[in-house]
Amino acid sequence: MEMNEDKKDFKTNTVGDIFSDNPKIVSRNVSVYYNDKKAISDVSLDIGSKEIISLIGPSGCGKSTFLRCFNRMNDTIDGCKVEGKIFLDNENIYDEMIDVVPLRAKVGMVFQKPNPFPKSIYDNVAYGPRIHGLVDNKKDMDNIVEMSLKNAGLWDEVKDRLDSPGTGLSGGQQQRLCIARAIAVSPEIILMDEPCSALDPIATAKIEELLQTLANDYSIVIVTHSMQQAARVSQRTAYFHLGELVEVGYTKHIFTNPTDIKTQNYITGRIG
């Protein structure tokens, strides 16, 4: 299997170390097209087990496109074609044999705008376990809902009103509800696409604090527009520019002394 490739032999234009010692996801030479337009080009990157990695870069550089490759969400977009290889625990997720339904349970996603279903708080969390057939009795479901809401840091705020609509919560609470919904199906990876861009600073801080706890159990890939947020929450940071992965490295390196001038211009807010 290609995951056992020799790192020294792998060529990439990306500056920094694309490899992880303990990879959960391995992506190699990933290019994505929307019809004839190439959105990302030849991206190779490991996502480490239980690490938080942030993807940064200007709008339209391909962060969301790359993120959507990991749970094959791009399959749902007409005219979208993915090239290259992506392995999750040594398994090629673009293999014909792969069923995307369990894949998407394994690789959960949280979006920019909190999008709870127009259902009760309880049913929002119970939805996934129900459709994936994870439980067959009320007691187990109650447990999953409680654990998920606790792990999402929301339990204390909603435990007395599980029957009220999820859409009635504040923005930050809704986003934590969406996180609870994602973790209810026991994923291994959580993808987050600008999860705080619709939230105020306090709600953002709560999510960031939650991310640190979640990283004990999951690998987290977070796309963020806020460089300060990338600096605060992630161990590694990957900088994208015009569809290419320019540089990746430890967050403390990227934000103190990046190697590539394009990275420096971006993180310091300079005209590139």
Binding site: T268, G269, R270
Partner: peptide, 11 residues
């Protein structure tokens, strides 16, 4: 050595 900042006042 370095480019200008987008926010000129920072420069």
């Amino acid at each position: 050595m370095t480019n200008e900042h987008i926010v000129g006042k920072f420069d």
